[in-house]
């Protein structure tokens, strides 16, 4: 066993580690293994995206059929926001051509974790072309002057 191990070159060991790392990365990048809907709460999970600029974090969500006046964005703690909106008309599996499942959906709901410190009380929202934009200003640090 020891002899066998000694025979492997450093490159082989490195390659094995790289393969292992690749496999882990693949696992992490794999899409979530849960559905994008929840029958219990009658909610659909919208597509969401987060981008970070020097000044703000922008969370967007695609909300087709959403009633604009029902859109709510709530800060849940300092690094989590919850987005919800009612859908103009109930959508059932049957509307999507699926006959082997039962259930209807009346709203969108999703949560987005904010990866950097932000000021949730200064949050601004915009809804255009069915896309919700949540702008969260990033917390400012202390300015240090060059002596």
């Amino acid at each position: 066993m020891y002899e066998e191990r000694r025979k492997r070159s450093a490159f082989e060991i490195m390659r094995e580690y790289m393969e292992l790392l690749d496999a882990w990365a693949d696992e992490l990048l794999e899409s979530p293994g849960r559905p994008s809907w929840d029958i219990q709460s009658c909610c659909l999970e919208p597509l969401c995206d987060i981008s970070i600029t020097a000044d703000e974090v922008v969370v967007t969500a695609d909300l087709p059929y959403a009633q604009p006046e029902t859109i709510e964005v709530e800060a849940v703690g300092h690094d989590l926001i919850e987005i919800s909106a009612k859908i103009k008309r109930k959508v059932g599996f049957g509307d999507l051509g699926i006959t082997h499942r039962e259930g209807e959906f009346s709203s969108f709901r999703s949560r987005a974790r904010i990866p950097v410190p932000v000021e949730t009380d200064r949050m601004k929202i915009r809804f255009k072309r069915g896309i919700l934009e949540v702008h969260l200003p990033r917390k400012k640090g202390h300015r240090i002057r060059i002596e």
């Binding site: 899409s31 994008s36 659909l44 919208p46 597509l47 695609d62 059929y65 959508v91 999507l96």
Partner: peptide
Amino acid sequence: EIRLRARDIMR
């Protein structure tokens, strides 16, 4: 309707 139906393949 397409945007709603295409959520999963987009994900």
